[in-house]
Amino acid sequence: MDLGIANKTALVLGGGGGLGGAIAQSLAREGVKVVVADLSLEAATATADRIKATGQTAHARQWDLRALDAIDAQVGWIEANVGPVDILVNNTGGPPPTPASGQQADLWREHFEGMVLSVVQLTDRVLPGMRERGWGRVITSTSSGVIAPIPNLGISNALRMSLVGWSKTLAREVGQDGITSNIVLPGRIATARITFLDEARAKREGRSVEDVSRESTASIPVGRYGDPAEYGDAVAFLASARASYITGSTIRVDGGLIASI
């Protein structure tokens, strides 16, 4: 299937990580010009190099999402050197495991700025151009915790939930401009983040990582952790011309993990 997005420009936040890197590569396979942004320039460059090795176009950018005053300059560079952003993939890192109670205000504020406010302000920066061109995709990757809150991920559950309300509201505001806004949430995808969370749980509960992983896998109907490429391909479809009637939605890529309807 031709997804109809060849030569579009995509900005993928967190593109040096497991999920972001997979998203960037899936988009590149469709002929999209991808800007890989990450706090680690080394990680962003590694993803960009993998894409370029396949003959596709990719650029690496070091980007600290907490630096809100740098958004305009970062987007300006992309517009001048690659093209206007047609596809924005908001994929931010997760906060450390914490209970919901007893956390310092500064910790909440730090992660709110990096996970929520940065996404809102960046999206606001690229929306006028999308409206002018009559086409755009805003895809925000969150967590299964927005549907079924995950124990000991209090900050993540709360802040990512705010992005769901924001994205749904945005979808109604920009739908007639040819722009879609959707949430994508991963279940347990085999990335370094999942390994970290399994290790943290094992330490907290005095169990082996292997035992925690086996128990987690047993709770997934398909019987395994997801492949990052499966997640990336789902995002690429939502970014496509074929998905023009999907907006305001929350798409689960979880192997059936989340029990609720």
Rank of each mutant, 00 (worst) to 15 (best):
N152C: 09
R61W: 09
G248K: 08
I150G: 09
S101Y: 02
L3W: 00
A60I: 08
R137G: 13
L257H: 06
T57H: 13
Y231K: 06
P95K: 01
A44W: 01
V85A: 14
R207I: 04
A243Q: 08
R133I: 11
L122R: 01
E199N: 15
H59F: 12
S213N: 04
P128K: 06
G175L: 03
A200N: 08
E79W: 06
R160C: 13
I155D: 01
V253N: 04
G256C: 09
V85E: 12
V174M: 02
T45M: 12
R193C: 07
N7Q: 10
P97Q: 02
A218G: 00
G93T: 00
A46I: 07
V12Y: 12
S181T: 14
R50T: 15
T250Q: 07
V126Y: 02
A236Y: 05
A22I: 10
L117A: 14
L163M: 13
S144H: 10
I78S: 10
A202L: 09
V138L: 07
L107S: 10
V82Y: 03
P99W: 01
S216Y: 00
I246Y: 04
R201A: 12
R160W: 05
E205V: 13
S162P: 11
F237D: 08
V85P: 07
S249C: 10
D211H: 13
P84F: 02
A158G: 15
S118R: 05
A6D: 11
G76F: 01
G165F: 04
S260Y: 05
D69N: 13
S144N: 11
G18A: 07
L65F: 10
W135G: 06
V12F: 08
L88E: 00
E199K: 15
P97A: 07
I87Y: 00
T54R: 05
N152I: 09
T45D: 05
L159I: 08
R252H: 02
L257F: 12
D64Q: 05
D2P: 14
A190K: 04
M130Y: 03
W108H: 13
V36K: 09
V235C: 10
P97W: 02
V32C: 12
A44R: 04
T57Q: 14
I194Q: 04
I246Q: 05
E79N: 15
S213Q: 09
T57S: 15
Q74C: 07
K203L: 11
P128V: 11
P228E: 00
P84W: 01
G76W: 03
S208T: 15
V85G: 15
H111N: 09
G55P: 14
R66L: 06
G14I: 01
G129D: 09
D254N: 14
D124A: 15
A229G: 14
D49Y: 07
E110L: 05
I139T: 03
R193E: 01
A44T: 06
F196D: 15
E113D: 12
R224G: 11
L197D: 03
G129I: 09
S162D: 07
V116I: 11
K52A: 13
V146L: 05
I189C: 05
I150W: 00
R214P: 07
E210C: 12
T180V: 12
L107R: 10
A190N: 14
K33A: 12
P151N: 06
A24Q: 02
G175D: 08
S240F: 06
R137K: 03
A171Y: 02
L65C: 15
G17S: 14
P95W: 02
